[in-house]
Design a protein around this nucleic acid. Sequence first.
DNA 1: TTTCGTTTTGACACCGGTTTCCTTTTTCGC
DNA 2: GCGAAAAAGGAAACCGGTGTCAAAACGAAA
Lengths: 338, 338
Amino acid sequence: MAKSGPAPTINDVARVAGVSKKTVSRVINRSPLLREATRAKVEKVIAELGYTPNPQARALALRRNFLIGLLHDNPNAQTVLNFQEGVLDAIRDTEFALVVRPVDRHSPAMLDDIRNFLEQQRLYGVLILPPISENDDLAALCREMGCGYVRMGSAALDEAEHLVQSNDREMVEGVVDYLVKLGHRRIGLIEGPSGFRSAFERREGFLAAMHRHGLEVPPAALAQGNYRFDSGHRAANDLLSAEPRVTAIFASNDEMAAGAYHAARERGVEVPRQLSIVGFDDSPIAAHIWPPMSTVGWPIREMAKAAALKLVAPDSSEALPSSFPARLVTRNSVAEPG
Amino acid sequence: MAKSGPAPTINDVARVAGVSKKTVSRVINRSPLLREATRAKVEKVIAELGYTPNPQARALALRRNFLIGLLHDNPNAQTVLNFQEGVLDAIRDTEFALVVRPVDRHSPAMLDDIRNFLEQQRLYGVLILPPISENDDLAALCREMGCGYVRMGSAALDEAEHLVQSNDREMVEGVVDYLVKLGHRRIGLIEGPSGFRSAFERREGFLAAMHRHGLEVPPAALAQGNYRFDSGHRAANDLLSAEPRVTAIFASNDEMAAGAYHAARERGVEVPRQLSIVGFDDSPIAAHIWPPMSTVGWPIREMAKAAALKLVAPDSSEALPSSFPARLVTRNSVAEPG
DNA sequence: TTTCGTTTTGACACCGGTTTCCTTTTTCGC
DNA sequence: GCGAAAAAGGAAACCGGTGTCAAAACGAAA
């Protein structure tokens, strides 16, 4: 069985079983028009020989392959990796495989690179992670090239068939409600980079909730970041310099929230006694920083699984949700003000 | 050029150019025995039609494909992602693609899963990240299946042709030297899980250096972890309970070092004034935790690139080193013992 | 111009599957 | 037990490339 020679082919199976290769092909593909006895005979030989169909030959004959691509430029490694795991959950025990492709959003040749990639590899389809998933040119490229795609997004970026989303906006509103209920009135926001849908959604959620509670949002309570640690550090410094000082900060992701921790520490502002901080993403740093940080977690792995199924088995995945609830993870970075 | 119909094939090119498909094949493969005029003619048609060879067909005809796999179970997401980027550096602009496969070391079916994976996908070869790279059964499986492989390891796990390594042991010795030079005498070690080569190497480096300096290592200065945050937390608690207390802790990775930070903070032990901490890996948490942590960084991306080249172009990569120097990244978690 | 030795090029089989279409076998009603 | 319909199985072509080997074209020498 574990012969180390060349792998057995469909011809070997056919010869040994005394049938035609077409019949073997029927067995592999579970064709119903096959006598039970024949199927059993062939299956026995397949097992004996340890035969596995050659995916390249199959791909050639079927004119489609079984590779699905992951396009990402997400700065959060854990997010990307969780996503990969979720996709694997979906395609485990299928003939699909996942090929990854980090992209550089800032490269002017990005679209051309991706076009070459898609042309060369002839992928079955691609999954696109935020923030690059917000690039409409990329989606257009996929459509133009006849390549299936599913985008992960925080809002209606595309038709439902191409989208798996979470409800960032509502969750951010929930965070604000939570902080307000604890007594916070002056709440600062560290925004994500402008032009990013997710940043926009989170900002809008924040503003809507503040407005709903009748709370002011002076310009000094809004600071811009770029989703990186350092930018959170700078933004928090700006926020903490203004008087009267904010008693709570919501950062649009955990990296920036961690940066805010550093800024607070440097100024001798104690978290959470003097300043509450809430992040977004529930990345590992949230649990590992001191004090452990409250944050908003979204079910990346489940979303990834849904996205992958949407791509490879659109029928079976119709039952699955394409919108997923984020949830507040409360740890120790939030307290009553004062 | 950007027709959206079915992609042009080698036959289309041959027909339009008025040559045989074999000639087109020669052009694609840069065969030297071709008249310049013919080559130009064919290349013109290729450009006009926007032809790209079908990788599945090529794979079938050549009896090898252009997929390289990444097997990993590393808990550090950033490490894995950096590695992926490094591999991409190596295979960018080639026809190779990277397919990822997270594995579960604790699953009893792991080896069978991987065997199925290799059998199904017929990969050109695989790259194996630690800690799973230390599994000799896995390497044996690759050999048995005739699948190329390169392991990342901290010591002589395998023949050179299958290995890319860093010099963990020496670096750990360097860390100890550094701490001793600052005046530390009672240094604790948080070990990685037993059975792991990397954990072993780091431990041996630690013990060797302590011995060289004539310093004792009482059992209470050795604590076992499993590379996870929580285990580092527990281990540090053990270390810090013993009297006389250690003045410095070296943790075998950053996650555990971060756990040690938490333990110290809970006990009111100030880092670095009362306790110096050094980690290993230079993962993002090292820079983001407070105070920023000194740690040992290894050039993952370069190593990944070297590993990938070793797999896909063993000749050209002979010039590259297969042993890479780690380096001490000094931040603010180390001070003279107080 | 012919001849001969080199290049260049092409015809054809093949890689390992699937599809089409047709033949053989089985099943079953009468 | 017969004939027809249905089911099962096979031959050959095809998917889009590459390898082999012989034929064609070329160029220099005779």
